[in-house]
Amino acid sequence: MALALHHIVIDAHDLPGLARFWCRVLDWKVLSEREREVVIGTDASAPVGICFMPSPDGKSVKNRLHLDLAPDDQEAEVERLLGLGARRVDVGQGAEVGWVVLADPEGNEFCVLRPKRSLIAFR
C-alpha cells in the first residue's frame, strides 16, 4: 500500500508565532508560510512535517492527540522548553509517571519523555 504520513496538522490562532515556537523546539525551519498555512520541517523532502492552519475556536479541553518528545536529557530539555515559552500543565498524569506534560503558547499539550531507544521499549 502506497501511503505515508505527510503532515501533522495543528489548528492555531497565530500560525507564524506557533510555527516559530515549534521550529525552536524541534530545531526545524519554516518551509512555507502563507496566510492560511505555515509548514515546518527539517527540509522540503523530509518524510513528515507539521502544518499550522487557522482556527477561530479556542482550546477548551485536553488534546485528543499530542506529540511525545524523547530527549537525551529530560530535565534539561524541560528547562529549555520552558525558556522557549512552554508551560507545565496537569492533565491528570499524577506524580509517578515517566514524562512531563507541557503546553505550547496556545495551550496544546505535549509530553517530554525519558530517553528512549525504541518506539515500544523503555530505556
Rank of each mutant, 00 (worst) to 15 (best):
A4Y: 05
A4W: 01
H7T: 11
I8D: 04
I10P: 01
I10H: 02
D11V: 01
A12R: 07
A12Q: 06
H13S: 13
D14R: 06
P16A: 13
L18W: 08
L18Y: 08
A19F: 09
F21P: 04
W22T: 08
C23T: 15
C23G: 06
C23W: 04
R24D: 15
R24G: 04
L26V: 07
D27C: 07
D27H: 13
D27L: 03
D27I: 01
W28S: 12
W28K: 05
K29M: 05
K29C: 05
K29N: 07
K29Q: 14
V30E: 14
L31E: 09
L31T: 05
S32A: 13
S32F: 11
E33N: 11
E33K: 10
R34I: 00
R34W: 04
R34P: 00
R34D: 10
E35N: 08
E37P: 00
V39P: 01
I40V: 12
G41W: 02
A44D: 10
S45Y: 05
A46T: 01
A46F: 01
P47Q: 03
P47H: 02
P47K: 03
V48E: 06
G49V: 04
I50M: 12
I50A: 03
I50R: 02
F52M: 02
F52L: 11
M53T: 08
P54K: 11
P54W: 05
P54R: 08
P56H: 11
P56A: 15
P56N: 13
G58Q: 12
G58H: 06
K59W: 00
K59A: 02
S60C: 03
V61T: 14
K62F: 01
K62D: 04
K62A: 14
N63H: 08
R64S: 12
R64K: 10
R64Y: 00
L65S: 09
L65V: 15
H66K: 11
L69D: 03
L69H: 07
L69R: 02
P71C: 09
D72Q: 15
D73K: 10
Q74W: 00
E75A: 15
A76G: 07
A76L: 06
E77A: 11
E77F: 12
V78R: 06
E79N: 11
L81H: 07
L82P: 07
L82N: 09
G83W: 03
G85M: 11
A86N: 04
A86S: 12
R87T: 13
R88Q: 06
D90I: 11
D90Y: 10
V91K: 09
V91H: 09
V91W: 09
G92P: 06
G94A: 09
G94C: 07
A95R: 15
E96P: 00
E96L: 08
E96T: 09
V97Q: 12
V97M: 07
G98F: 05
W99T: 13
V100E: 14
V101F: 01
V101S: 14
A103Q: 13
D104W: 01
D104N: 03
P105L: 05
G107K: 03
G107T: 00
N108L: 04
E109C: 06
E109P: 00
E109K: 00
L113M: 15
L113G: 11
P115Q: 10
P115A: 10
S118V: 00
L119Y: 06
L119A: 14
I120F: 07
A121S: 13
